[in-house]
Each structure stands twice: as structure tokens, then as C-alpha cells.
Design a protein around this nucleic acid. Structure first.
Length: 267
DNA sequence: CTTGTCAATTAGATTA
DNA sequence: TAATCTAATTGACAAG
């Protein structure tokens, strides 16, 4: 029974990390936080967010009229009509020869012991290659394409359909894994940045406890801490309204509120 | 209602 | 032999 149906991508990713063994070293809550983080950083405009997605060429929805009969072929009992042929045998001939005959019905697999799966079909290299090729062109097939491909590959349309279905799922999973990796890296660098900023805050707090003594240029008396401010350019403590307490290392910079050419020009 | 897609899951085959 | 891969099934859902 599916636990989640049509959940937002957020929850889907959260679930994936658990159920699909996506990030074994990454606790699910952390992934959840990461995702939120990601949305904050990248903006919540695109649900999939990252542009490291593999380009998904035209998701042409199948709006076909026929193809209804194909799923009757192997439903019920799980396609007991699968031929028991060794399809892994190298095709003994040209490109078009696939050593399997799953198109025809074969009921000998239906054993006496109730419903049991037949031998699992393994696609030949050539079949896989052709399927991959057409997947590259289109991630979904119209019923006509499906039929044609099935004939070409000597498979049932349903098998082609299933292959595409599973292939789409694999693509999506891979993409999710890439997103996960990206978020992990994001998390790492943001954690580092956070650490650095925390240190800076601590340093600034320490400075507030014991503020530097800045003498007034006019009275030569120590200024109160409230009258001091920090120059964002040279990061030195200065008197808020007066001229700088110390000269910046570089004099090439233009005028600024903290380093006015004339004290009267400030603010 | 029919049809197609998706998510979740199962289970046979293969690999390490 | 456990882990992994992948063909196949099932049930829910949406569109027409």
C-alpha cells in the first residue's frame, strides 16, 4: 500500500531519504532542513529548484487512441506468458535479431502452485541500447511509438511501456540524488559560514565589554562608547561624528562618512 | 468509464 | 550470501 500519494516534492524528498536509502549518512530531519535552506538560498520559485537537472526533453503526453489491448497481455498472474528463453545469449546475427519471443503467448509457466512469477526477462544489449536511444529522444511514448518500438524489439508493448516507466523513475531518482549531494555541499559551506559569523559576533561582543579608548580630537578626553562607531571600510573604531581616530592604511580611497576630506562634509 | 502515468512495492537475476 | 539491479505488479489519480 503506498503511504504517500501525490505529496509535494518537499515531503517526497524527505521520504526518499528514508525509504530509498538515498543518504544513509544523512538523517531525514537534516535533509528536510537542507531543503528548506535550499529554498531560502535559491528562491522558492522553482519547485525542483536546481538547474543541475538533466534536460528532460518534451514530456509529450500520450494522447493516443489505441493501445488499450496491450495491458491485457500480461496482467493477472504477472505475465505468465513470458517465454523461457535465454535472452542473454548474444544475438546471432544482425541488429534486428532479438533472441526472445515474448510476443507470442506461452502458458507453460503457469504452474500448479498458484500464482508465481515466471523467469525474469533480461533485455539484450541491443534491446537496451535501442530503448535508451529512444528514451533520449522522448521520455514518454505515444501508443504508436510504443507499438512500433515493441515490434522492432520483439517485445510486447506493455514491456516497452514498463521499461520507460522504470527508466523515468531511475532518472528521477538520480536527479534527486544529485540534488541531495548539492544540498549537502550547501549545508557544509553554510555551516562553515555560520561558524565564522558566530566567531565574529563573539569578537564584537568582547569588544563591547572592553571598548577601546578613543580620544576626542577636540578635547583630548576619552569618548563614551556610545559615541563610537565602526568604519565599514577600514573596520576601525571611530568617533561617530568626528574625524577618524586613526588613519586608514590606504589613502587612495575616496571620501566617505568615515573618512571625509573635511570633517564638515560628514553626513 | 477508459486510458495513461506515477509511486510504491515485489521478486528474480546478477554482482561483489 | 547479502546487496544491488531491474522487470513487473498494484493501486491511486488525473485527463478526456
Amino acid at each position: 500500500m503506498p503511504l504517500i500519494k501525490r505529496l509535494p516534492r518537499l515531503l517526497l524528498l524527505f521520504n526518499l531519504s528514508v525509504s530509498l536509502r538515498l543518504c544513509p549518512v544523512f538523517p531525514a530531519p537534516a535533509l528536510f532542513l537542507l531543503l528548506l535552506l535550499h529554498w531560502l538560498v535559491m528562491g522558492a520559485t522553482s519547485p525542483s529548484g536546481l538547474e543541475l537537472t538533466m534536460a528532460v526533453p518534451g514530456l509529450s503526453s500520450s494522447s493516443g487512441s489505441e493501445g488499450a489491448g496491450c495491458n491485457n497481455n500480461n496482467n493477472g498472474g504477472g505475465g505468465g506468458n513470458m517465454r523461457d528463453l535465454d535472452i542473454n545469449q548474444p544475438a546471432s546475427g544482425g541488429e534486428e535479431e532479438f533472441p526472445m519471443g515474448s510476443v507470442e503467448e506461452d502458458e507453460e509457466e503457469r504452474g500448479v502452485g498458484g500464482p508465481h512469477r515466471p523467469k525474469k526477462l533480461r533485455l539484450s544489449k541491443e534491446q537496451s541500447r535501442l530503448l535508451e536511444e529512444s528514451f533520449r529522444l522522448n521520455h514518454t511514448l505515444t501508443p504508436k511509438q510504443k507499438e512500433a518500438l515493441a515490434i522492432k524489439l520483439k517485445l510486447r508493448p506493455r514491456q516497452v511501456e514498463v521499461w520507460f516507466q522504470n527508466r523515468r523513475a531511475r532518472t528521477k531518482l538520480k536527479q534527486t540524488e544529485m540534488e541531495c549531494e548539492y544540498l549537502k555541499r550547501c549545508f557544509g559551506s553554510l555551516t562553515e559560514e555560520n561558524r565564522r559569523l558566530q566567531r565574529e559576533v563573539e569578537e564584537l561582543r568582547a569588544m563591547r565589554v572592553a571598548p577601546p579608548t578613543v580620544l576626542s580630537p577636540h578635547t583630548r578626553q576619552p569618548l563614551p562608547a556610545s559615541a563610537l562607531t565602526m568604519c565599514p571600510r577600514c573596520e576601525r573604531i571611530t568617533a561617530a561624528t568626528g574625524p577618524p581616530a586613526a588613519r586608514p592604511p590606504s589613502s587612495a580611497a575616496g571620501p566617505s562618512p568615515f573618512h571625509p576630506r573635511r570633517p564638515s562634509a560628514a553626513f
